[in-house]
């Protein structure tokens, strides 16, 4: 249902020793949105995502997913999200079958569901013939496909992606973009963090711009583009960052 807030960041602060990584970040993402989260390296994108996924705790503030706080109901929140981390790292001594079977168990999927879903998803990402190979011999892009499957196989309500297209080939990127659009049409919410502005421009409905831990702009792609009277989103964001600097 559009207009229903699914992700809420409430006055989030995060400090690492003397460094303030996030400074009073407030944000709401509605159901069915593909929400872009943009910022330069070190702006605080990954820190925000780590807080949303429960990997780290905010110094102050709270993050809510589907109305549940990550601080007070971490397990419920984690059960409703699918996450692709920036590193894309996985336990590559395992085969895709072993890795995904155990992921399914961690998300409490039934054995029957796991057995059905794994071949389906591997087929979708053209990995069916590599189901029992150790992933250490896979290329980065192939590993990334397995990370995608791990994020999607429990059919989460919210997808949190941190540079999800890293290492993927052109064809798979097209697949992934279609998949995101399809998920959004089904009413799922996608939080998409990247510094690749052209991809964000094509995929996202709305976006937020982060600069040195602060949100400096939130709006639709058109609004952001028009904001500085620029022709492209990239130019507009460059101006925005320069103004902040």
């Amino acid at each position: 249902m559009a207009g229903e807030p699914v992700i809420e960041l409430r006055n989030i602060y995060k400090d690492y020793a003397a460094t303030r990584a996030l400074n009073d970040v407030c944000l709401t993402v509605d159901r069915g949105e593909v929400f872009g989260y943009i910022g330069a390296n070190g702006a605080g994108k990954t820190t925000t995502i780590k807080i949303l996924t429960g990997l780290i705790k905010p110094t102050a503030g709270d993050a809510l997913i589907c109305g549940k706080s990550i601080l007070t109901s971490p397990l419920e929140v984690k059960g409703s999200i699918g996450y692709i981390p920036e590193s894309g790292s996985l336990f590559d001594k395992l085969s895709p079958r072993e890795y995904l079977t155990n992921i399914g168990r961690l998300y409490r999927l039934s054995d029957a569901a796991i057995k059905t879903k794994i071949p389906e998803w591997l087929e979708y990402f053209e990995l069916a013939d590599r189901i029992d190979q150790r992933m250490e011999v896979f290329s980065k892009g192939t590993k990334q496909k397995v990370v995608w499957i791990a994020a999607l196989m429990h059919d989460p309500e919210v997808l949190i992606f941190d540079e999800p297209l890293s290492g993927l080939d052109v064809e798979t990127i097209a697949h992934a973009k279609d998949l995101m659009k399809r998920y959004a049409a089904e009413g799922k919410t996608i939080f998409y963090s990247s510094h690749l502005i052209d991809v964000v421009e094509k995929v996202c409905t709305r976006l937020a711009v982060l600069h040195k831990g602060r949100l400096v702009g939130v709006g639709t792609v058109e609004e952001m583009r028009a904001r500085n009277g620029s022709l492209s989103l990239e130019e507009s964001l460059m101006k925005l960052w320069q103004d902040q600097a």
Partner: peptide, 17 residues
């Protein structure tokens, strides 16, 4: 311990207590 210790994000992000 693991030679792929960074991959343990999985346990932190999954709904496991």
């Amino acid at each position: 311990q693991s030679p792929r210790s960074e991959a343990s994000w999985l346990f932190s992000s999954a709904p496991v207590d």
